[in-house]
Structures are given as C-alpha cells and as structure tokens.
Computed example of a mutant assay.
Amino acid sequence: MGAISREVKDGFRYDEVPWQRFRHFYGPGEDIPGLLATLASGDAEAADGALQQLWTDLHHQGGTIAVGALAVPFLLRIAVAGRPGLRAQTLRLIAEIGRCQHMGDGSREGLLQVAEEPLMIEGSTMCPVDWTIQAARQAVTDDLYLVLPLLSDPDPEVRSVTAYVLAAATGELSHVSSALRSRLAKEDDAAARVSLILAIAQLAREHQYGHAPQWARDLWSDPGRPPEVRIGAGLAVSGHRPRPRRAPRPAHRPRHPSIRRPAPAGAMADLGRPPWLRAAQLHRRNAHDNHPRNSA
C-alpha cells in the first residue's frame, strides 16, 4: 500500500492505481473506482447504493479480497469528507477489510483475533487472505491522521466504529492507545465505551502489551463502573485468553468471571451495537446459513 502516494490518494487519482490486476467477488477490479466516485458524490441515493454494492463486492459473506485493500485509502477519505449519514457504514467496511473473518467463530477467545491463518487463500484471486488484511491495516496506519479525529465525531456510532478501525493499526501504537484511553475517559455512549475498551485490548493482545489484561480485570472488578464498562472489560479479559484445546468437560467447570453476574437487561441490549459483536453475529449467521444441513 505504500506504493500509492499521498498525492494520488488525496487527489482521488483512481487511474494511477492498478485495479485491473485484481478481481472483486463478482467481477473485475476496474468496477471499484466508479463505485468509489459515486459514494463520494452529492447524490444521496446513488451514494447509498454504491456503498451497498461495495459491501457486496469487497466483503462477500464475511470474506475479504485483495482489491479491497486498494480501496481502503479512498474509503477513508470519503468517510471523512463524504456524507455524514454514511460515515459509520463506510468505516465499518474499512475495518472489516482489515481483519480476519471468523466464519462462525463467535467465541470470546476469538473476538480480538486480527490476523488470518498464513495458508488461507482467497479462491478467486489465489492471494493469501492475510496479505490483503495486512495491506489494509497498513493503509489505515498510513492515514491515522485522518482516522484519529473521528473519535470525537458527534455521532456515537461513528466513534464506536472508529475504535474498531483503529484497533487494526500496525504502527504508532502508543499514540493510538493513548487516544483511545483519552476518549474512553470522557465517552458517554454505552456501545462506544465497549468499543473503546475492546480496541485497547485488541491492540494489546496482538502487540503483547502486558499490562492490558490486568487493566481490563481492574475495570471489570470495580463495582462502581457502569455496566457496559464492566461487560466490555469482561469481554476483553476473555479475548486475551488463548483459544482452548478440546478436552473432556469437567463435572463442575468454573465460569469465567465476566459472565458470573448478569448485567441489567438494558445494558445488554445496548451491546448489540458495538462492531465487534455485530461482526461475530454476522459470521455466526453466515456459517449457519452455509452449513449443508441448513442449505437444502
């Protein structure tokens, strides 16, 4: 992604990007610049249609594809300068291009996983999926100066999804983590608080920040914290645990502390909005729909 200069990105000079080398899920990569241009246009109905088509072409059934990484720098600029009503969905598409697709894994241990298995190949392009993910993440990291201000967007959904995007950063990690913590200290939206906690935890998990699990445990164990903070912290603690191997179930298996005490019903309802949980629900549904038993 470093081969795309800032001048090309800022000027939306699509003709200087090698779209023709890659396909999207339903056709040639040359389709993507036109959709990006429509998304950036002043026609609200056409822009909405273009965004829905980009989701279909670049994120089919939870998967990601190489041409999506080429689109990320332009999607970022459109999210910042384009229609505010489409900002959250545009940012969510960016985030999904830049993370592994769990394909039905809704476990807490898999919630903060970012990279894909190195041998996973995307069938239509034969490119390793992790190459696409890492290229998209690098594109986000190169343009952090565009993303970080969105943590203060007036729309809480945008703030929540911005945390989801920032969790995929591969550089300037102390700066990103500090910005997330600063926003968390003054955030008043429940779902955005959960997203900020999970973003901090995801960065720590991947980059081996040793203090983050204890920080999350301290948040969870503090009865003075709001319910959504304690729930988010419990999910973060679970996400730091390694995925367990299959083993015989003990007669009395201890429950994880994050689920010992039920949260108030209202708090749990609010947690349907954080993008981590939306993604897990989507991939779980896709896995169910594509299972041979359910496809007949």
Rank of each mutant, 00 (worst) to 15 (best):
A81S: 12
A95F: 07
P84T: 02
L86R: 02
A95N: 05
G98Q: 15
A71N: 04
G68V: 14
G85C: 07
L91C: 02
G82A: 01
G82S: 07
V72A: 03
L93A: 08
I65P: 00
P73G: 02
G62D: 09
A88G: 06
R83S: 13
A81Y: 10
L91E: 04
L91S: 01
L76H: 00
T64M: 07
L76A: 04
R77K: 15
P73C: 02
L75E: 03
L93N: 04
G63R: 14
A81T: 01
T64C: 09
V72Q: 01
E96W: 03
Q89E: 11
G85V: 07
L91K: 02
I94W: 01
H102D: 08
L76G: 08
A66C: 05
L75F: 13
L76D: 00
T90M: 04
F74E: 04
R87F: 11
A66P: 08
V80T: 05
R99P: 12
A66Y: 14
A88D: 12
P84G: 14
I94R: 00
A81E: 15
A95V: 05
G98T: 13
L75P: 02
I94K: 00
A69N: 04
T64E: 07
T64S: 15
Q89M: 13
L91W: 08
I97N: 03
G98F: 06
Q101K: 09
G85H: 04
R99D: 09
I97G: 08
R92K: 11
A66Q: 11
G63W: 14
L91D: 05
G98A: 15
L93M: 02
E96T: 14
Q101T: 02
L75A: 04
L70R: 04
G85A: 11
A66R: 14
T64N: 11
A79W: 08
P73K: 08
R87C: 00
R99Q: 13
R92E: 15
Q89T: 14
Q101F: 07
L86H: 07
G62I: 11
G68N: 08
L91H: 09
A81K: 13
R87D: 02
T90F: 05
T90P: 01
E96N: 12
R99N: 11
I97M: 13
G85T: 01
A79T: 03
V80A: 01
T64V: 15
A79L: 04
G85I: 06
T90V: 10
L70W: 13
L75M: 06
P84H: 13
L93D: 06
A88C: 03
R92N: 11
R77D: 12
P73I: 14
I78D: 06
L86V: 13
L93Y: 06
